[in-house]
Nucleic acid binder design. Sequence first.
DNA 1: TTCAAAACAATCAAATTCAATCATTTATTT
DNA 2: AAATAAATGATTGAATTTGATTGTTTTGAA
Lengths: 264, 264
Amino acid sequence: MLEKQRQQLILDILDEQQFVHVKSLSEQLDSSEATIRRDLLKLSQQNKIKKIRGGAQAVNFDRSALQRRSLSSSAFLVAKQQQPEVKRLIAKKAVELCSDGESIIINGGSSTFMMGEFLLERELNILTNSFVLAQELTENSDNNLILPGGEIYRKQGIILSAFENDTIQYYSMDKMFMGTPGIGEYGVTESDTLLIRSEQKLLKQADKLIVLADSSKLGRKSNFILCPLEEVDILITDSNADEKHLKVFHDKNIEVIIVDAPDS
Amino acid sequence: MLEKQRQQLILDILDEQQFVHVKSLSEQLDSSEATIRRDLLKLSQQNKIKKIRGGAQAVNFDRSALQRRSLSSSAFLVAKQQQPEVKRLIAKKAVELCSDGESIIINGGSSTFMMGEFLLERELNILTNSFVLAQELTENSDNNLILPGGEIYRKQGIILSAFENDTIQYYSMDKMFMGTPGIGEYGVTESDTLLIRSEQKLLKQADKLIVLADSSKLGRKSNFILCPLEEVDILITDSNADEKHLKVFHDKNIEVIIVDAPDS
DNA sequence: TTCAAAACAATCAAATTCAATCATTTATTT
DNA sequence: AAATAAATGATTGAATTTGATTGTTTTGAA
């Protein structure tokens, strides 16, 4: 991985969470801890992050600017940068599972955001808490869009409500598409505490759950468990997936759809 | 492969992914690394890419955001040009009634949309069923935005819910700003059947109702009555207002704010 | 306080990337 | 076709980056 690319990714990660461990970065970016430390040193000298013992901390000296930038789709770009082709193919396959006229739920997040590209020419009923996705599809497609009520979180580009009962409880949808930072025997995980509630609420309104997770997400575990594997109906991943992981899903009767990874 | 062709392909690739290795380009384009380096040098001299150690970085990686930004702030500019100056002054006065930190409701519609221009530098809690206003202010301001749940109606640019109980019932706001096609002794009127329900629901959550209506709207009556005059606390209109109409509002103890009409 | 584990900066050797150079191939002009 | 110009690919040594190793510092538990 390129030096600049690595550093950009560190910034992107810190855009989404307040703190990261050196170790975690080293694993995620597939570089030695020494290299990560050097990156952190450089970035902190540029005042782009704050270097603290154990890792790095986000420096929100210009919170508004950062928020605006992330909303505009940096999350989308990070996703693209990390796994450009694979994620796109997975998103494409996900959209192919829908027929026009169907009602689907799409949760906020970079993986599912990529579905947008393939939804442009479709006509579905789409319930989503992703404000950015709704924006794109409202402007550029004929899909019918439904939003949950709540506050707009610029950084994540999503709408969240603190209240139990909101508009979405009245909607019954066919499928829910969900991206995740990690899925394994323990279930589907999520890193953001804000997101997890909202996603659980959305999940209740869907008949089927379809998880989008490229091979790097399999067996990974993020901070919080969103739902057990039993809830998952279909998993879409790529051909780099480890047999060991796939077996777990198979044992739970999850239908696994595998798309060809370009560089496998 | 021709030189120009190769360089265009490099640009295409960087249009998609922000970073590439020299090695990867060399393989993809079937040229030596030396040639690729020369291409990168030329392209970077033209400022079309950024040359970094190990490869190249897209310079316009935030292009979509930039486009959207200029386009979106121009949404206010367009409104500014199309609407008469009076409406703008009324909108400005309306925003001046708010102090930072306050919670306000703004209904969808062209008059109230113009408030957006003056809200850019403010920090308020804004509950609005105007999807377009929310969009603009999310991208270009630091206001906290709250949306009701429901379906997006493209034509009107608003969010509507068919259900009685939605998220907004939990919000208690200081002021509601409402534009209207007609206001008179019979009350505040509205022409759009879709809008009227939604606005009545919003109204319930506000302590004070402030109506924006230039002088041409006074004494006018549109198809439906949204609420009686008793509910109105403040009316903002312009200096062309007829005394006869103003007396009606005065009798109902409505505070009337009059802005100077430029061509009066 | 003591101790062990973790995180750290400094250092070094290996690997990678680079610009410069030159011979060869390809394109253009005469 | 010959001469000239331009582009390409290979080679080189220098510069930079990287991961591993070292010993030191910090941390939290005993």
